[in-house]
């Protein structure tokens, strides 16, 4: 079985600049017409990629320099919008598979979805985010390492402190991010709670 612990994750990095990148941009809704998550990786940021191409520019996900990237570097409020898990699934399945996301801030549902998939989303301050993105843009092969235990991301010779809620961080570090088992273990308590709720028993 694959090790589920997320202690140290290695790059290369992919810089993806912009605030408020929403889930409709991460995976346009037309690709949600499916009953699996298979193949979503190919369509990550499809419309953004196309539009940049038309403007004669290159989206980082189309840029051969970043094709081997596994850690994504973003800015503020990343993943806002819908609750679709298709968004982190698409990112996770893109190219060589993204294993972690580093940004200034994340939308709440997106963050939770990533944790459920074992993909840490950690935050850095705005100055660091910009510095890291610039460093990777200047040298796509620069060594990138996310040390979730030590709460830092290393880019080349530089070390930047990262933050993440203690609960989710521990879950990821210890490999306990797949919650179903923990929840199921409390089934007797779940039934007790249900029995206590007046609406469950129909206000008898």
């Amino acid at each position: 079985m694959q090790d589920s612990r997320r202690e140290t994750l290695f790059g290369p990095g992919v810089p993806l600049r912009g605030n408020d990148i929403d889930t409709d941009r991460i995976i346009p809704a037309r690709f949600l017409r499916t009953v699996t998550f298979d193949g979503l990786g190919d369509h990550a940021f499809e419309d953004d990629r196309l539009q940049l191409k038309e403007q004669g520019k290159v989206h980082p996900f189309d840029d051969p320099r970043f094709a081997d990237g596994t850690i994504l570097f973003v800015n503020k409020n990343f993943g806002c919008g819908s609750s679709r898990e298709h968004a982190p699934q698409a990112i996770k399945r893109w190219g060589k598979c993204i294993t972690a996301i580093v940004g200034e801030s994340f939308a709440e549902i997106f963050f939770g979805n990533c944790v459920s998939l074992g993909v840490p989303c950690v935050t850095v301050d705005a100055v660091s985010a910009d510095a890291i993105q610039s460093a990777i843009e200047a040298d796509p092969n620069v060594a990138v390492k996310l040390d979730l235990r030590g709460k830092a991301v290393h880019v080349g010779v530089n070390r930047y402190p990262v933050e993440m809620g203690e609960g989710p961080r521990q879950q990821l570090v210890e490999g306990r991010w797949d919650t179903t088992g923990e929840l199921l273990a409390n089934m007797p308590k779940i039934r007790e709670t249900a029995n206590r709720l007046k609406y469950v028993s129909g206000y008898k």
Binding site: S83, G112, N113, T179, L183
Partner: peptide
């Protein structure tokens, strides 16, 4: 509140 698909699985399996 809205939830992701892995959480839909959790609610189906445990209602929690």
């Amino acid at each position: 509140f809205g939830i992701g698909t892995s959480q839909v699985r959790d609610v189906l399996a445990t209602q929690t």
